[in-house]
Amino acid sequence: MKVIVTNSYDETCAVIANMIKELVNAKPDAKLGLATGGTPVPIYKKLIEMNKAGEVDFSRVHTVNLDEYCGIPGTHDQSYRYFMDTNLFDHINIDKKNTFVASGMGDFEANARELEEKVREGGAADLQLLGIGNNGHIAFNEASDHLIAVAHTEKLTESTINANARFFEKKEDVPTMAITMGMGDILAAKKVVLAATGLAKVPAIRGLIMDDVITTQNPSTMLKMHEDAVVVIDRELADAVGYRA
């Protein structure tokens, strides 16, 4: 696992946006695994700028998103389909037919199976973008005594619900279930890139980069098994966990 320490989160996002740009320029029909939440928003802004400047062409790219809430439609302003459209897809030259975000409505188990099919369709993702939860969860693979390899429904922990409550009018509105890629799906990507910032992530990042322990109580530690995993953090976070390059 490679750790890159930047001077700021803006630099972190620039580093990752450049990784994605270089991949797509080298492989115009690349398959990207994408993430939602606050972490990737500045990365997507930089990709939009690059696309508008003619530095990268997304017209042949395919994408599959990590997860989606159960119980809210794609038109809901807190759904991950809405998030991806408004934060990236509406602003770049991607064919939305080549983008996939699991449906959060109807038969959740069937929707999880469809996500699993999309993960496998056309082969593994060339790059999987990840954030990390305060408890080390990756996508909605929550800290637990076990993890699931394939796409599935997941009951969200109180910690995750609390972390996501800021996006809703009130905590009671936060969905308590989600559809998510499994850890096996994530680890199947050819390259995995995780971005993190903020002192709330210290325990999770410390467990990820400071020792050789792999535990389901910090799902991010599974990335230690990946042959091409990159963790990009800023100096503030690196100092807080005691990491020295």
Rank of each mutant, 00 (worst) to 15 (best):
K224Q: 10
D212W: 03
Y69K: 04
G37P: 02
E11F: 02
I179V: 11
L115K: 03
N135H: 05
E68C: 10
D107Y: 11
I209Y: 01
T39W: 00
T75E: 15
N65V: 02
D95K: 08
I214S: 05
N134L: 02
A17W: 01
E227L: 08
I138Y: 00
S59F: 03
N141I: 06
I48H: 05
T75Y: 14
D107F: 08
N25D: 13
H91S: 13
T160A: 08
A26W: 03
M19D: 13
V24Q: 05
G242M: 09
A149F: 06
K118R: 15
T39G: 02
G207D: 15
F89S: 03
I205P: 01
Y44Q: 03
N162Q: 12
A245N: 15
F100K: 05
H152M: 09
T39E: 00
M84L: 07
L32C: 06
N25F: 04
N134A: 15
G123Y: 06
V24S: 05
K27S: 06
N218I: 15
K96A: 11
P40Y: 06
E68I: 12
E55M: 11
A112S: 14
L187E: 10
T12W: 01
I179D: 00
M50K: 08
R113K: 15
D107C: 10
N164Q: 10
K191D: 11
M105H: 04
D185F: 04
Q78W: 06
H146P: 06
A139R: 04
T36S: 13
A245K: 14
L237I: 01
H62L: 04
A240S: 04
Q217P: 01
T157V: 09
T197V: 04
E55N: 14
G182S: 05
G38H: 09
T12Q: 06
A26V: 06
E68A: 09
V3C: 01
A238V: 07
Q217Y: 12
